[in-house]
Write a protein that binds this DNA or RNA. Structure first.
Length: 94
DNA sequence: GTCATGACACCTC
DNA sequence: CGAGGTGCCATGA
């Protein structure tokens, strides 16, 4: 794994504004990651100190393993989820 | 080298 | 809108 890319991804996640969200694909495209999967890997391994809850899947639903906690954190920032699904059209970053 | 796994995305039906 | 199949790529056995 390229360390520079690793840092770029962390930086991109850090740059997501409070009250907004981004998809794994968005972060991947913005950082040049070869695949959205890489983003998920970085978050799971080294995302504990990042606003990881602002990164969700393209469907608007958070990743399964942390879905419950993620929705709470988002709700605390003003990102409302309709039946576990975030309105990307409204909250998607840039 | 092959095979399986996973905080994913996209296309079809 | 959803379910299923396919593509994707780093990692570890």
């Amino acid at each position: 794994m390229d360390e520079r890319l690793h840092e770029l991804i962390r930086e991109a996640v850090r740059s997501v504004p409070r009250g907004r969200v981004a998809t794994y694909g968005d972060i991947a495209a913005r950082t040049g990651a070869s695949s959205p999967r890489i983003v998920g890997k970085v978050l799971s391994e080294d995302g504990h100190d990042l606003p990881w809850h602002r990164v969700i899947r393209a469907t608007g639903r958070p990743a399964e393993p942390v879905a419950r906690r993620q929705l709470e954190l988002l709700r605390a920032e003003g990102v409302l989820a309709d039946d576990g699904k975030v309105d990307l059209g409204q909250y998607r970053w840039r």
